[in-house]
Amino acid sequence: MASSRQHLDALTGLRFLAAAHVVAYHVYHLVFTGAEAPPGLHGLLDSGYVGVSFFFVLSGFILGYNYLERPPDTHAARKAFWVARFARVYPVYALGLAVAAPAFLKGLRDVWAVDPSQASRQAEALVLAPLLLQSWTPWTALAWNAAGWSLAVEAVFYAAFPFLAGRLGRLGPRKLAVGAAVAYGAALLLPALYMLVDPDHTGGTASAYNSGPWMLALRFNPLARLPEFILGILAGRFFLLRAGEAPRSRPVLLAVLGGLVVAALLGSTSLPFPLLHNGLLAPVFAALIVLLPRSRGAVARVLASRPLRLLGEASYALYILHMPVLFAWKSVLKRLGAEPTSAWAVAAYVVGVVCLSVLAYERVEKPARGWIRDLWTGRAEQPATGLQPRA
């Protein structure tokens, strides 16, 4: 493969920033409940869900980058691909379920005492979540470990990728542009229809913490999010087509793209929530993902630095573990009679969850990945890490 590992180091660091934005979003809403930061900062903290859209685009790009030149188009290759994906994501995902289980089961017990019918619906997650199926029903999507909903969506992406790769990997520049436009239009079609019809009767007030069943289905259903992933694959194909070109520094273009993202996040409360949640910024993310690895500017160098690379590698564990750890930490603080909004409590949580994510990456994710792939395939047949293409 023509590409080399260092081309993607900056994306590894960027993964950490996206995951940190998601963490800040949940700390803002689950710790500082009822408080509201100044308008710009509020918009930034209130838009952490956009990071998941970034991860969907990045996932498509990385898989495209790794596999489009040699798509998994045989039974053996598809099996190796799926085993590699399972080995990559499931061990830490299972760890997240284990850490979240006490709070989830206690919550089920409390809900059962008040509304047994609602508790029984949420209890479906006991079966669906371990099978990565919880995002197919609105009432279980956020159950157990809420962050896991996106892994249920990614599972569908992984299942579909071998069948998409053969087609998308042959597209030339013109068809790529058409495909990207179609994918982007498809991403925004359902949110636009939702806004037009308003089936939940929200009057335009839908938000991440004020969603009816139709909005929940729109946000979490894997098919509604598939276009963002396809857009990422197309970005990966475009990147491969230009792999032979000399790296260029495009500081102005990168600054414009970064500025667009920051401006959208700061002003997120003025943008339609359904569109912003479901891929409004996906083309901007795709452009950043394509340009950043080929940049030699200061931002790319910082993102590719060793500390940010390590944090980026641990960002998946951070994403999966940050909510159950937050609930556990709040429970500890309650027992101690401490205030969760105090500076020391928030700092202790942030430092602790980041350190725990690095530990989970080193002691759970990496070794388990090797054990699973060796057990199922006997040898490492395909790249599993997503950011380290192999020859």
Rank of each mutant, 00 (worst) to 15 (best):
V99H: 13
A391R: 15
V22K: 01
F229G: 08
A80Q: 10
L58N: 06
G297K: 10
Y28K: 11
T205W: 09
V302A: 13
A304W: 07
N278Q: 11
A141K: 04
A282C: 12
V27N: 05
A77E: 09
A129I: 12
W82N: 08
L257Q: 05
F163P: 00
S357C: 06
A2N: 12
G185N: 09
L218G: 08
R248V: 07
A246R: 09
R306S: 06
A255T: 15
L128C: 08
L375Y: 03
A24L: 15
P307L: 10
P293L: 10
L288Q: 00
A129E: 13
L266Q: 09
L133Y: 12
Y349L: 14
L41H: 04
A177H: 03
P138L: 04
A98S: 07
Y93D: 13
A146G: 04
L168S: 08
A314F: 01
V353T: 15
R369D: 00
P199E: 15
D110A: 04
F86R: 03
A76G: 03
V83G: 09
F229H: 08
Y90R: 06
V350Q: 04
R248T: 11
L291Q: 15
V262F: 03
K366G: 04
L188A: 15
L41M: 05
L387D: 13
L142E: 06
H7L: 01
R294N: 03
A155R: 06
L260C: 13
H75W: 12
G166H: 14
L68W: 06
S211C: 01
S117T: 01
V111I: 05
F220W: 14
W329R: 09
A10D: 04
L193Y: 04
E365V: 05
A159R: 11
V89F: 14
A286G: 05
D115M: 07
Q382H: 12
V256P: 02
A224R: 01
H75L: 10
L303D: 07
L95W: 13
A328C: 02
A343K: 12
K366Q: 14
A208V: 05
V346D: 06
A37M: 03
F285C: 05
L223V: 12
F163C: 03
P272V: 07
V99I: 15
R369S: 12
R85G: 12
A103S: 13
T202R: 06
Y209S: 03
G244I: 12
A159V: 13
A10C: 04
R363Y: 02
T341F: 03
V262I: 14
G185R: 02
V332D: 07
V83K: 10
E313N: 08
H75M: 07
L63H: 08
V252Q: 05
L168Q: 08
L68P: 12
L318Q: 02
V89E: 00
Y319N: 01
P199I: 14
N221R: 07
V50A: 09
S4N: 13
R248E: 09
K366H: 08
P191S: 11
A24S: 14
P162C: 07
G352L: 14
R70C: 06
V178N: 00
A123H: 14
T137I: 10
L132M: 14
E365C: 06
A147F: 11
A10F: 02
P173L: 02
L241D: 02
W376T: 00
G258I: 13
T137K: 15
L387M: 10
